[in-house]
Simulated scan of single mutants.
Amino acid sequence: MKPQKIKSYQLLILEVISLAILFVNESFFININNTIYIIILTIGVTLSTNVLAAYISDKYKNNDLNDIAAKNFVVLKSCQDYGLINIQKEFPLDSEEIQNDFVDSKNVYIIMNDAKRFISDNTLLIEKRLKKKKNSTTLILQDLNQTDVIDYHIKDLKKKCDNTHKFLFYLNPNYNTLAILLTDNYAMYSIYRIAPGKTEVPHFIFKNGCSEYDLVKRDVEKIIQMSKLQN
């Protein structure tokens, strides 16, 4: 057996011994003698942490820790700066927190090419939002063969709105490169694949208060200015 493996097994045995010491101490000595309990606790914790430190030091002895941190944590730093909190297969409207945010947000923007699947999959949730008084929901679709969507979905959604709920529908003359869902607290978007046909795409979720949320909001505001408001 290689020396490296032997040392790893030795460290593993020592870690098991330290955990056994802590277990016995917590099970028997904690109620018998406080002084003995503290001494054994100190020995067990010290042994456990030293074994762990020895393992980490041995495993990475040929690597500079700064290089390791740079390679593994630079992505996390970028995610934090952008406000990226998750990547999922769908818009996370099954999450209670985001679902409530979608329903209760003062302003919600939905920007897609046709939105047929999104509306069909989330009809009840959208209708629940449209019943919220004095809120605003803006839907922006690509201006191309949307007659079915307008006749079947949009007109029906307008009928479900509370009288004080502001429902705005725009047609965008440009091709939407992203499907966007913007609420008061989250900016969510997914990409469109280059080739035609439906396929799985990643959905990115960003929180308000970071750079990407602000960029998405600014982008949405600009596309509204370029789009045609429908009656």
Rank of each mutant, 00 (worst) to 15 (best):
77 K>V: 11
198 K>R: 08
178 L>N: 11
162 D>V: 04
164 T>V: 00
180 I>S: 07
166 K>P: 01
166 K>C: 08
95 S>E: 15
88 Q>T: 15
210 C>K: 14
173 P>A: 08
82 Y>I: 02
205 I>G: 06
91 F>C: 04
136 S>Y: 00
186 Y>E: 12
117 R>V: 10
194 I>R: 13
110 I>N: 06
186 Y>S: 08
88 Q>W: 02
78 S>F: 02
111 I>G: 04
189 Y>T: 04
97 E>L: 09
126 I>V: 13
179 A>S: 15
178 L>V: 03
159 K>T: 12
124 L>F: 06
205 I>E: 11
106 K>A: 15
164 T>A: 07
131 K>V: 01
135 N>T: 12
111 I>N: 12
160 K>D: 02
135 N>L: 00
163 N>C: 05
176 N>V: 03
119 I>Q: 00
78 S>C: 02
92 P>W: 08
169 F>V: 10
156 D>Q: 13
182 L>T: 02
106 K>W: 03
165 H>R: 06
118 F>G: 02
206 F>H: 11
105 S>D: 09
205 I>A: 07
151 D>K: 15
187 A>Q: 04
153 H>Q: 15
155 K>V: 07
78 S>E: 14
120 S>H: 12
181 L>R: 03
121 D>G: 00
154 I>G: 06
194 I>A: 10
164 T>E: 13
190 S>P: 01
91 F>H: 07
126 I>M: 08
95 S>Q: 13
179 A>K: 10
110 I>T: 01
172 N>L: 09
76 L>S: 11
180 I>V: 15
212 E>G: 01
193 R>A: 09
155 K>E: 14
89 K>M: 06
163 N>Y: 07
139 L>S: 00
186 Y>D: 11
153 H>R: 10
145 N>F: 12
142 Q>T: 14
111 I>F: 11
205 I>N: 01
147 T>K: 15
